[in-house]
Simulated scan of single mutants.
Amino acid sequence: MTMHSQGPIVIAAGGTGGHLFPGQALAQELRRRGRHIVLITDERVQRFDALFPGADIFSVPSATPNDRGIVGLVKALPAIISGVAQAFAILGRVKPSVVIGFGGYPTLPPLIAAVLRGVPACVHEQNAVLGRVNRLMTPFVHAIASTFSAPKYLRARDGAKLALTGNPVRDAVMAHAAAPYVVPDEGGRIELLVFGGSQGARVMSDVVPGALARLAPGLRGRLHVVQQARSEDIDQVRGKYLDAGISVELKSFFDDMPARIAASHLVIGRSGASTIAELSVIGRPSILVPLPHSLDNDQKANAQKLQAAGAAIMIEQKDFTEESLAARLQELLAEPSTLANVARAALRQGAPDAVRRLADLVEALGSGEFKAHLEDKTLSDETGPSGPLLFSLEDC
């Protein structure tokens, strides 16, 4: 395929917020640079098309194997092959300079189509563990952008392609980047934010209200809780808080979540990649409860990274009970200086320049500069001779 260095940039992402949000952040930065964006995803795109204004949006079929192993893959193959054919035709029409995939099985057809057409291709891994599709595609793509310097399952032979960019966050998050953390006044209101990802989490509704009801009355009376809950759970959860005398605001979805994070003294939530990135860029302490059934335990790996840096507290779901959470909260909320220390540690883990680094990488791929960069660059002392490239276009 003829090189189109100024052609559109194709973003391929699964239909969940965890994949689309970093894609949205990249699209916002590239649009500021005057680049045209094409989004390829699955049928869920109708829920997210407002996130990519001005982009050409295409939906192609794909499938996630329901069964692990060869049987599940065989069942998914017809949809994937159909998606590859459709994506191949789309790329032929739009003539992109680069295709970048953000994970999830909907990214597989456009990435395969890019390889077949000879279009420079890249994957971005948000988690500490390479996802299934990214793991499958790393031998064939030109670059692997990563949040972490050593994602699990990265093959040694693909290590030279790794570029440490961080996980980009949306403009709405950057508007609150490094917002000062103000510890609760003695006897003053404590802002607690509880959410379970873009779809909410039943376990939060089951455990958190009862845990807060177990706190000492003086502490309980200072709480103001903002909680995301499933629509069908809201009345029951509200009743629990009213019985405990706790002030609460409940919704099934908050469209101003970055502002809510910035306003909080403590966050209780899952540990998906986007949540980790937003907590770190804003700089807020958190209790993280990894989704126990996520593929390859990627959420647990994410939470462990933050906990090891003193930037969060991880409680596995099997240990996430009213009793254990109440004990931890009583300890944390009684020592505001501890919360402040965790907030500072979280901020140190943030990568507010991630979107710039990723956009630099994508543009370098489109112009052919990234390959030369890999061949010629002497790695800096910061990463060491075997570390990833800390990528910036200025280095090319």
Rank of each mutant, 00 (worst) to 15 (best):
M3Q: 06
S5R: 14
A12T: 06
A13E: 04
F21Q: 13
F21K: 15
E29P: 13
R33P: 04
R44L: 01
A50M: 01
F52G: 03
D56V: 14
D56K: 09
I57V: 06
F58C: 10
A63F: 10
P65K: 07
V74S: 14
A79M: 06
S82C: 14
S82E: 07
G83D: 14
V84T: 08
L91K: 03
R93G: 00
R93S: 06
V99W: 02
Y105H: 11
Y105M: 03
L108D: 02
P110S: 08
I112M: 07
V119R: 02
P120K: 08
V123H: 02
N127C: 09
N127D: 01
L130V: 10
L130F: 08
P139R: 02
F140E: 03
F140I: 03
A143G: 03
F148C: 08
S149C: 15
A156Q: 10
R157N: 11
D158N: 14
K161F: 02
A163C: 09
T165R: 03
G166L: 07
P168G: 09
R170T: 05
D171W: 15
H176P: 09
A179F: 11
D185V: 02
D185C: 00
G188V: 00
G196S: 06
S198H: 04
Q199S: 08
A201D: 06
A201V: 09
R202L: 10
S205I: 05
V207G: 01
V207C: 01
A211M: 08
L212T: 04
P217K: 12
S231I: 08
D235P: 06
K240E: 13
Y241G: 00
L242G: 02
I246T: 02
S247C: 00
K251S: 13
F253P: 00
F253K: 05
F254V: 06
P258Y: 03
R260L: 01
G269A: 05
G272M: 09
S274G: 15
S274Q: 09
I276W: 12
E278T: 07
S280I: 05
S286F: 09
P290A: 11
H293S: 05
L295Y: 13
D298V: 14
K305W: 11
Q307Y: 08
M314F: 02
D319R: 05
T321N: 04
E323G: 05
A327R: 12
R328C: 08
Q330A: 10
L333R: 06
L333Y: 07
A340F: 02
V342C: 01
G350C: 06
G350L: 04
R357V: 15
D360P: 02
F370G: 05
L374C: 14
D376N: 11
L379G: 01
D381A: 08
G387Q: 09
F391D: 11
F391W: 09
F391H: 07
L393P: 00
E394D: 14
